[in-house]
Design a protein around this nucleic acid. Structure first.
Lengths: 360, 360
DNA sequence: TCCGCTGAATAGAGCGCTCTCCCATGATCG
DNA sequence: CGATCATGGGAGAGCGCTCTATTCAGCGGA
């Protein structure tokens, strides 16, 4: 680094001069295209080393029309902004609350992990965005339009989320987590929730449970509905048409109160299926407070196989949702859409798997 | 949009032609620089509207040498890569485990929230990066060097994290969460952990607790140490030189087992200070299993005021760490470093605040 | 010997934007 | 009334890269 600490970063030009070749040749070596004489390749590589050259992303994107960035959007329903929200839109308070809710569930962390796992080897990176208001949605759209990101991975927290339709309308590359409530011409990745519910029912029945109840998720969420449907169908198929249900909100507290209600009405219950692990944890806590042993007195099956399934005690028997794999698949699909290799919307549905631990 | 659905996005040139002015004038209107005749401003704005123009980020970055992106780096200690890691470096498994650990604590979600809160109004965006291995660290550095991001916000999960020093050595703009173990010429944001410990002690004593114990965090983490020191000093100042300690790992499970141990040795305890809320939750669960009522029999004080402080039952009395504000301050400092408004490393230390709820 | 012909390297035209000059205009002033 | 100056606008030079078109060297075949 004797060559003077000039603040300016070295450019292709500098490397070319150093190596005694043209800019184009250096570019070819870096991008590994076309035939370049091995001896010259070496020459160039050494020059790159010597100058400490790093390609400038902006310049590259400008010509390739690709940023190497994808937006990872967590999207809510939010105001339509037409209904005259007090100026300034969403308050910091609201945004914090929204973010906190999103991250309270380990689910999102798994999504991030899966996405990064796929993106990293391809030198791509996720930009985190929240789209909980009309304003924020507009920002996401403009971010994509101006080419700051090549596409979007969207995780909706609400069935009425308008973002997918907006993305589809503009023809922006995007992949969704879970099938959207309304049909939209976008690829998505999903889980066979029905089958997950079925597996939970079969396991509880096989264990010999006779009085089974269920704490369902919010019934306006399709995934919750499907888990419940699959669960009930399997029960019905085994001659159990009636299953007491309490609706929860996917939170620990809601699991506890749902369980309290069920215990009051059905004190002799001996099996519970909770539609996610967080609620299952609440269920366990409430059962313990009522002196029930798990799984001796009551067997509990959760859903997701999130980190809490193993941190909570007893460790949860649960239906595994392979979130990391699903997220990686989203990234893969998006990448293919961006590269233009894939043009038609596609869906990939994953199979859940029962993980047997201590709670059932 | 009658003007032919040519796939090409409209450029400044197009807008300029449409408005009958020069490219430079349109640019001036968009960036709000220099005086432009109001009537022409209007003309231009209408032309922008009509063409549906969005400025191209890459082109802009190329000349301004600013990307409008900052890296939000979650950094671990990780291998030094010199010790011959089996080819391929970090496995997907490891990365998932790392990510899961990071997101299991609601802490990181609050950081994200605070950062976005500051960045969004400034049209800046965070790129999520993990730096749990030497390879990953190199990638972060190159990402910054090539101008893909203007600076880095670093949250270290390990005191020996080498990333801060690397960033400082290259003179890349960066701000840390928490003071680094070794002195590094970077700005950071921190909390007065000692004072937080003090507040917890004072509250338990003021409540009349006589047999107080504490579940500390990992003692190789400075924050844990400081919380403990502050706690013990305050106790000592009130004539209580001896406080039984169990060391936990900031996880729910570790809180439970630490509490189990303390209960065995000090069955008559009536007050517990846990160094974070997750452990406090474990403490509460364990106390309940031993038939203790909270707060009647045992008072529990947590630390952080994370979301679980209110979702857990009873709701936790806890020392609030204003993570969102701290994260926003990080973003603010980084932005100033990037703009060149601030050149010297700075530290900002926040004060904790005791939030009294039901557990103590 | 000359002519394609192929492979390897170069020249140079942009990508879409910002920003520094420079020029036209009209107001101000000695 | 010409010199001075603020004001608003345009021309055009890049920013650092990719990629097409082009040149050039070498080589076998008629």
């Amino acid at each position: 680094m004797v060559r003077g600490m000039n603040r300016q970063a070295p450019t292709l030009e500098d490397v070319a001069r150093e190596a005694g070749v043209s800019r184009a040749t250096v570019s070819r070596v870096i991008n590994g295209v076309r035939n370049v004489d091995p001896s010259i390749q070496d020459l160039v590589r050494r020059a790159i080393e010597r100058t400490g050259y790093t390609p400038n992303r902006a310049a590259r994107s400008l010509v390739t029309r690709r940023s190497g960035t994808v937006a990872l959007v967590v999207s809510g329903a939010g105001d339509s902004s037409a209904d005259g929200v007090p100026a300034g839109g969403v308050s910091a308070q609201d945004q914090n609350a929204f973010t906190a809710r999103v991250f309270a569930d380990p689910f999102f962390g798994r999504v991030v992990s899966g996405v990064i796992g796929h993106l990293r080897p391809r030198c791509m990176h996720p930009v985190l965005m929240f789209a909980e208001s009309a304003e924020a949605r507009a920002e996401v759209l403009s971010y994509l339009r101006q080419g700051s990101a090549d596409g979007a991975l969207v995780v909706s927290t609400h069935p009425e989320d308008p973002l997918p339709a907006l993305l589809a309308a503009e023809g922006l590359p995007a992949v969704l987590f879970a099938r959207p409530a309304r049909p939209v011409a976008l690829s998505y990745v999903d889980l066979d929730h029905r089958d997950g519910g079925r597996q939970a029912a079969d396991h509880l029945l096989a264990r010999g449970c006779r009085r089974i109840v269920t704490v369902a998720g919010p019934l306006d969420v399709r995934a919750s509905q499907n888990r419940l449907d699959g669960f009930r169908d399997a029960m019905a198929r085994q001659g159990r048409p009636y299953v007491p249900i309490a609706e929860g909100g996917f939170t620990l507290a809601s699991g506890m109160s749902a369980m309290a209600g069920l215990l009051a009405e059905h004190p002799d219950l001996d099996g519970v299926f909770a539609a996610n692990d967080l609620m299952a944890q609440g269920v366990c806590q409430m059962l313990r407070e009522h002196g029930r042993r798990i799984p001796e007195d009551v067997a509990v099956v959760g859903f997701d196989d999130s980190t809490i399934a193993v941190t909570c005690s007893p460790q949860l028997t649960t239906v595994r949702q392979p979130v990391e794999d699903m997220a990686a698949e989203m990234a893969r699909l998006l990448e293919e859409h961006i590269r233009g290799v894939r043009t038609e919307p596609t869906s990939v549905v994953f199979d859940p798997e029962l993980i047997v631990r201590d709670s059932a």
